[in-house]
Each structure stands twice: as structure tokens, then as C-alpha cells.
């Protein structure tokens, strides 16, 4: 994994300009497989199970994309990336799309020449500590040793937070979540900080998860979403509208189970366009007309994806919160399918 940052950096500058820039959709179709940049392993978001099958909230969006393009959610290959290697992997063309808890920021959008085409999880950075440390607020962490993943926004937020509160800390820089967990569980750091969703996911896999608490402070905005290379707008549209389709499906009550039946019977014009019954929305962006129907049939609507991977009742047990639909007081709001 470390090496791929180097190779990727070289590759990023030596591949022929045209190949990686335009026509990602054509490349994917020609290859017969989507390549999706994923986590190295974050339970609930993207992780391979014992049989090597990838599952998770982010993984399901990759599957939805594969279903939209090929009508088959299994035609996708997952490439694990760390916080450090992920953007290089995307820029060099090693992956077609990166769906891996990545925060949309100004510099990534501009300087790194990437495009964040949607926000599939509104998050913020939090801290996790051992219960018996006796800390109830992040502001009490003066002098603490903090585990932090390198190459992330959280690394910079952490520095800002401690500076603004005039307290000090000792950073322990780690490459990925599993190393952070190892150090944290061994007591090599007092606190572990990353996206709150990541903390919850991490805690769910710890042997004695109830020994740890997530502190109340959320110190940043972390809008996480799928990322594509800047400059291939059509491919960006494909990813954005596949995600939007899952949102609208939830809004309209279209589910994995009833999608075929709704397609046959619905009188709602937007639903008919969404499922390819009327209009040619899919064809307009180079997909089959029933692309979004296939995506919904493969993974379910946004609410189902959320509930089955990270929602209440799962090991991760996250509330919808900001990620509820706009009609239910959340921020998830898709542009109309028209």
C-alpha cells in the first residue's frame, strides 16, 4: 500500500494525458468492470468479509454504480486505499471513482483537481477515549497523546482545535484505522480522533467496545462523498445521479423489494422517469434506460443502504441525524429527476 503512493505519483505524471482524463465511462464499459477505491477496512463503510466479499455503506454505492452501468452489482473491483494513497490512486487512473469516507474540502476540489459529486454522509470529527480515563470533554485533553490518521483532514483539524483551545498534545501519526486501533487499544495513545462515523465503526469492532466513549465535541464539518477526477463531467454526472436516484427512491418509497412492482404500476411521473418507464434519462448520460431501477434493485434506496450497514440496530448503530431526508429534518436533498 505504501509503495503505491510512490508508483502512483510517478504514474500520475507519465500516463498518456488523454487516457485518464475523458471517457471514464467508456473505459469502464470496455473493461467490463468498475474499479472503486475503497477503505482498507472500516466495518460498516467498506470492508471485505471472510470470503473476500466487500460490504458496507460506501461499498453499496459502488455496487449501485456497477448495477447502473452493467445491470450487475458484482461487476466491480475494490482497491483498498489508505488516507495517504487514495487521491493519488484516483488521479493516476488506478481507480475510476473513490468512495472512501473522503471529506469534500476546498483544496481537494481545486488544488488536487478532483470533483466531489455528492455527499453521501454528513459527518464531523470526534474523539474517542477509554471510559476510565475520566474525561468528559475534548477540552480536558491537555497534554494527551492522540492517535491520528495521516493524510486526512482530521490531522489538520486536530492541530487547529488544540491551538484554538490553548492546550497541547502529542500526535502519534498512523497510516490507517487498523493501526490506529492497535495503538489505541494498547494504550499508546489516550485518545483516537477521526470522523465520528469512523469512530463508531471502529468501536464496533473492538473486543470491549463498551469500555470506550465518544466525547460530545464535534470539532469540524466532514461532508463525505464519492470523488472523481476533475474534467470528466459526464462520468461525474453518472456518479452524482446514481446517488441522487437512491435518495429520490427513498423519498418516493421505492425499495429494493417493491421496485419491479412500482415500475409496472406507478402513476408518479418522476418515479416513471427514475425507473426508466418513461423518458430516456439513462440514455442521456450513456447508461441503459433502466440503469437507476437496476441500482435500486441491487442495493435498495438510500435509507435501506443506511439502515442495513450502519443504521440503528447494526453494530455501528448510527442515528440518521443530519443524514435524514430533508423532508424529515435532515440534509439529504436530491435535485429533481426532470
Amino acid at each position: 500500500m505504501k509503495k503505491s503512493a510512490f508508483l502512483g505519483a510517478l504514474a500520475a505524471t507519465t500516463v498518456i494525458a488523454g487516457a485518464a482524463m475523458a471517457g471514464t465511462l467508456d473505459d469502464v464499459k470496455a473493461r467490463g468492470e468498475l474499479i472503486c477505491g475503497s477503505n482498507t477496512g472500516l466495518t460498516g463503510f467498506g470492508t471485505p468479509d471472510a470470503n473476500g466479499n466487500w460490504t458496507g455503506f460506501d461499498v453499496d454505492l459502488c455496487r449501485a454504480l456497477a448495477a447502473a452501468i452493467f445491470g450487475d452489482p458484482t461487476k466491480v473491483k475494490f482497491i483498498p486505499t489508505t488516507g495517504e494513497t487514495r487521491f493519488t490512486a484516483l488521479q493516476s487512473g488506478e481507480v475510476d471513482v473513490l468512495i472512501r469516507n473522503s471529506t469534500w474540502t476546498f483544496s481537494r476540489d481545486t488544488e488536487l483537481a478532483l470533483d466531489f459529486v455528492a455527499v453521501n454522509y454528513y459527518d464531523g470529527q470526534g474523539f474517542m477515549v477509554k471510559k476510565d480515563l475520566g474525561v468528559s470533554s475534548a477540552k480536558e485533553l491537555d497534554g494527551a497523546t492522540v492517535c491520528i490518521q495521516t493524510g486526512t483532514t482530521t490531522e489538520l483539524n486536530l492541530a487547529d482545535f488544540f491551538k484554538q483551545n490553548n492546550i497541547s498534545y502529542q500526535p502519534v501519526t498512523v497510516a490507517d484505522d487498523s493501526e490506529a486501533q492497535r495503538q489505541f487499544l494498547a494504550g499508546a495513545c489516550d485518545a483516537y480522533t477521526t470522523d465520528a462515523s469512523g469512530l463508531a465503526a471502529s468501536r464496533a469492532t473492538m473486543p470491549d467496545g463498551d469500555q470506550y466513549i465518544i466525547l460530545p465535541e464535534i470539532i469540524s464539518k466532514e461532508p463525505l462523498g464519492p470523488v472523481v477526477r476533475h474534467g470528466d463531467n459526464n462520468w461525474g454526472d453518472v456518479v452524482r445521479w446514481t446517488f441522487n436516484a437512491l435518495l429520490i427512491a427513498e423519498e418516493k418509497g421505492v425499495t429494493k423489494a417493491n421496485v419491479a412492482e412500482v415500475a409496472a404500476s406507478s402513476q408518479d411521473e418522476e418515479v416513471k422517469r427514475l425507473l426508466g418507464v418513461s423518458g430516456d434519462m439513462g440514455a442521456k448520460i450513456g447508461l441503459p434506460n433502466e440503469a437507476f431501477k437496476n441500482a435500486i434493485a441491487a442495493v435498495g434506496n438510500y435509507g435501506e443502504v443506511f439502515a442495513s450497514n450502519i443504521g440503528e440496530g447494526t453494530a455501528i448503530n448510527l442515528a440518521r441525524g443530519l443524514n435524514a431526508l430533508w423532508t424529515q429534518g435532515g440534509l439529504q436533498y436530491a435535485a429533481p429527476f426532470r
Partner: peptide, 21 residues
Amino acid sequence: SYLDLRGTLGGITLNQTGREL
């Protein structure tokens, strides 16, 4: 996780600025 030249310039700086080359 020893932050030597590879860790600072070739690691965090490279990542946060995106200046691989």
C-alpha cells in the same frame, strides 16, 4: 510512524498539498 523526511515532506506535506512530483 517515525516522522522523518519521508514522513513529513514525502508523507503529510505531499498529501495535504497534492504536490507529488
